[in-house]
Design a protein around this nucleic acid. Structure first.
Length: 560
RNA sequence: GCCCUCGUGGUGAAAUGGAUAUCACAACAGUCUUCGGAACUGUUGUUGGGGGUUCGAGUCCCUCCGAGGGCACCA
């Protein structure tokens, strides 16, 4: 059982023993370690309800805790502080008893979370569109989705990764219509860069072309034109192969691929079969979201073709038929949050059970200082070009430092730098993407964590004595401080899983790295009297760093 | 105009209604004859304005100001 749970149970008992009804309370880590390992606000909450003095009540609860002290192997000290907090300090024995577990590489399931155990969860993310480029927005979605998937997986859930790709729709028609005119034949990657941007621009400027696009769009749906079919099939495959090479580089392996060409038809049928939910309006079929405080959205357009909303509705059921999920998580940019509310409102009427299981996880935009990045205006920054820029800067930096790093490690650092800068902040907020700052990889960064890991491994490789040790030795302040951080890992992973928030894990790993590096800087490890215990702590740090980075989808090279 | 987000040091961010608001970058001042200096230590500096709720507000409510996104046949 996790330490937090143990403390909560003991506190509940102590509160009951003081004659007050049980209550919700918060057990948190105080910002300052001098306040102990955990702080409890239960006295302040109860004091108000029962008209008592908070500090007095706190000491009463503490007395009950002390009476149980023999049974509470974790309790070193409990004291009243501030306006009525109860600060708890853990025993060193307890802190260090978890360290051996932490060093066990194979014990990856030690933070299984009851509510996730054996849950079937499908996570959809990345969602690039064939015939268009894989831009930094897709990179952001991929990074977040992969991290969320891995974190949930580690808490005991059964995860399937899904990618939903828009292989039909107006964007495709624009690209195909343009390639018909310009003889782009979709044989090489450059077609992806030119056809959509060109078609999109012309669509806005030229009405004849616009009409042509609409015709082409219909032909793509019904596959009635041989020339278009040939171009389409080639372009689609070209795109998918290209995307696959990127997934490989980023470390994602999808279990399912869904395509709008499949979801469209089923979505359309679903909408048409429910005239009680969807109504005809101005030749289109819409869902009137006003009844739920939202707005009206078109599900089938006047051409009779399903829109994004109808496709997404169909997708929910198609996913479920393939993999009967308990939860379906959909990672997208936050520009569609309003649409998604309308969609969920409609889904609640059509597939109520599925709507309840669906969780939209919107992320902020990866923005450039000049404004919103858009693949519509043609000013696209591809994921690839970003990684190239990061890597170039990395090479410069490395040559200044006279450090050598091989091709694969270099790529792991570059990808890790970008991924970490995405994951370290709240995913819901926009990430102001400044190219220069993104490649400043000191401080709270992926490379810093990777470096900490490699450094720890280098120390371990030098050791001659056996470790890890089970029994702690007397050691310096730096090591003791480290002991107070190591046990928190599983707690942090649990919280990240619960809130779908990888940044808690990033913050923790950064704090751990800082604590370890301070320990390393101030205390000699190899050759010291307590060498074996220090090595034990070093190994625990290394293992957590590697496992933590892995949960974020970031590689941890042994040397760099 | 309406709806939804969001305003935290010079910059980028964190904070489960809790204590003296936490980190990183930058700036300045230092450490160390490296177990790997991509390190460590220290200093300066922050919750948009105004009300309210609360024992306690960056966080909740109202209002104003500012930014971003959305407001039917694109995704």
């Amino acid at each position: 059982m996790m330490i937090k749970k143990k403390i909560e149970l003991a506190v509940e008992e102590a509160v009951q023993a003081s004659g007050l009804p049980n209550n919700d309370f918060l057990l948190e880590h105080p910002t300052d370690l001098r306040f102990g390992d955990y702080a409890l606000n239960v006295a302040m909450i109860l004091a108000k309800k029962h008209n008592r003095e908070p500090k007095e009540l706190a000491s009463e609860i503490i007395q009950h805790l002390y009476r149980q002290k023999e049974n509470l192997e974790w309790l070193e000290k409990a004291e009243v502080a501030g306006p009525g907090f109860i600060n708890l300090t853990l025993t060193r024995n307890f802190l260090t008893s978890n360290i051996k577990e932490a060093t066990d590489q194979n014990n990856s399931s030690n933070f299984s979370q009851e509510e996730n155990k054996n849950q079937k969860i499908i996570v959809e993310y990345t969602d690039p569109n064939p015939f268009k480029l894989f831009h930094i927005g897709h990179l952001m979605s991929n990074t977040i989705g992969e991290a969320v998937a891995r974190i949930l997986e580690s808490t005991g859930a059964e995860i399937k990764r899904a990618c939903y790709q828009g292989d039909v729709g107006l964007h495709v028609a624009k690209a195909i219509a343009y390639s018909l005119e310009t003889k782009i034949d979709w044989q090489e990657k450059s077609a992806l860069e030119n056809a959509y941007a060109g078609g999109s621009k012309k669509y806005e400027e030229n009405d004849d072309f616009k009409n042509k696009v609409i015709v082409v769009n219909k032909k793509i749906y019904d596959r009635s034109d041989a020339e278009i079919n040939a171009l389409y099939d080639r372009g689609r495959q070209l795109s998918l192969d290209y995307f696959e090479s990127i997934y490989k580089r980023l470390g994602t392996k999808f279990d399912y691929y869904f395509f709008e060409s499949e979801t469209g038809q089923f979505g359309r049928e679903t909408v048409l079969s429910r005239p009680d939910v969807f109504v005809k309006s101005d030749q289109a079929i819409v869902y009137q979201g006003e009844q739920a405080g939202l707005h009206t959205r078109v599900f089938i357009n006047r051409e009779g073709l399903p829109t994004y909303e109808a496709k997404e509705l169909g997708l929910a059921k198609i996913k479920y038929d393939q993999y009967p999920y308990d939860r379906s998580i959909i990672v997208t940019g936050n520009e569609i949050v309003e649409y998604f509310k309308v969609l969920l409102s409609a889904m609640k009427k059509v597939f109520p059970a599925l709507a309840d299981k669906t969780k939209h996880l919107p992320h902020g935009m990866l923005r450039l200082p000049t404004g919103k990045m858009s693949s519509r205006t043609g000013e696209v920054i591809t994921a690839e070009s970003l990684l190239i820029a990061v890597k170039e800067r990395l090479v410069e930096k490395i040559s200044e430092k006279k450090i050598e790093a091989s091709g694969e490690v270099l790529d792991q650092i570059a990808v890790g730098a970008v991924k970490y800068s995405i994951l370290r902040q709240d995913i819901g907020k926009d990430l102001i993407f400044d190219l220069d700052k993104s490649i400043a990889f000191e401080g709270n960064s992926g490379p810093y964590l990777q470096y900490t890991y490699a450094r720890a491994k280098a120390v371990l490789a030098k050791a001659v004595n056996n470790f890890p040790e089970e029994t702690p030795r007397e050691t310096g302040e730096g090591g003791k401080l480290l002991e107070r951080w190591l046990y928190r890992f599983s707690e942090v992973v649990e919280r990240s899983a619960k809130e779908y928030a990888p940044h808690y894990l990033c913050t923790y790993l950064h704090e751990l790295a800082g604590t370890f590096n301070a320990f390393y800087a101030t205390e000699k490890i190899i050759g010291s009297e307590d060498e074996t215990w220090k090595l034990t702590l070093t190994q625990a740090t290394a293992t957590i760093m590697k496992n933590g980075l892995n949960l974020l989808g970031i590689e941890a090279p042994e040397r760099m």
